[in-house]
Amino acid sequence: MTHEMILAGFGGQGVMVMGQLLTYAGMLEGAHVSWIPSYGPEMRGGTANCSVIISQEPIGSPIVTEATAVVAMNLPSFEKFESSLSSGGILVLNSSLIDRQSKRDDIKTYNVPANEIANSLGDARMANMVALGALNAALGYIVDTSRIMEAFKKIFAKKPGIIASNELAILAGVKHITG
């Protein structure tokens, strides 16, 4: 199975780190993984996005153009990447900031009010972690949630104070999907 994902939002929403955590977790699972950002002027103001691939096979192109999953954290990202989803793909929409729905009937959409959930946990900046938990659950757990936390602890080794709250955010995202 090869998961080819696009995670997108506006600069500052933490989509890059969301992708890195997922990639790291995939690596810890022993899968082939790659992460590649779109960078440059796009990072400042407009949409920021990254491609993440987690696969049992060696990875060819690290750039995702036909995605099995898309996370859209804001409206421009939704507009830009909705068409990049392959048939049967999964769309995770941050419904806190996106009030539209996809008209495609060949994909499955999950509406996740990521900002509201993160807010209720005390910090809207954790919306990316809510979306990450939701994405992983929606995909039937491409990585174990504990792996994401393991990755989190590695990447944020210098900020142990934020681990517990972010774990709650990831779990809240999972719970939103599993109910």
Binding site: Q20, T23, S34, W35, I36, P37, Y39, P62, I63
Partner: peptide
Amino acid sequence: DGALGQMMEP
């Protein structure tokens, strides 16, 4: 190139 420089892999 810029893509290889920026991308992450194990």
